[in-house]
């Protein structure tokens, strides 16, 4: 299992056996509050780095989840639409949104590692 990488839009991505798993960070779920609706992409959907991939909504906010890298959806987390609270409970584990292929693995190098993301969050909170 590779290490987590992060986007400035608060998605995380983890490469696991040639497939990347994507979700929103714990910070993102805490900012949204109680999540009430999640829409995950269907298998086969082509994603472009930075393009809209999924939707997440709380009572008072709606937000797009962007693809951290380019690739194709392998699987959406079908458990999420029926239990969106999973994202609040375990954003970086069971609350994953979708799995995707790595169309261009070098794109991962442009993302933040844990230390850089922590620093980015500290700046945001300042």
């Amino acid at each position: 299992m590779s290490q987590l990488r992060f986007t400035k839009d608060h998605e995380w991505i983890r490469v696991d056996g040639g497939v990347a798993v994507v979700g929103i960070t714990d910070y993102a779920q805490s900012q949204l509050g109680d999540i009430v609706f999640v829409e995950v992409p269907a298998k086969g959907k082509a994603l472009k780095a930075g393009g809209e991939a999924a939707v997440v909504e709380s009572v008072k906010a709606a937000s797009e989840v962007y693809a951290p890298i380019t690739g194709e959806v392998v699987e959406g987390n079908v458990a999420l639409p029926d239990a969106p609270e999973t994202v609040n409970q375990d954003a970086q584990g069971a609350g994953w949104f979708f799995k995707m292929t790595l169309g261009s693995p070098s794109e991962l190098d442009g993302l933040m590692d844990q230390a850089a993301y922590d620093k980015y969050l500290a700046e945001l909170k300042a």
Binding site: F37, E57, S58, V59, K60, A61, A62
Partner: peptide, 12 residues
């Protein structure tokens, strides 16, 4: 379900 509406979704 007001996330569909203009006061939250604005241009979307």
């Amino acid at each position: 379900l007001s996330t569909r509406e203009q006061h939250i979704r604005r241009e979307k």
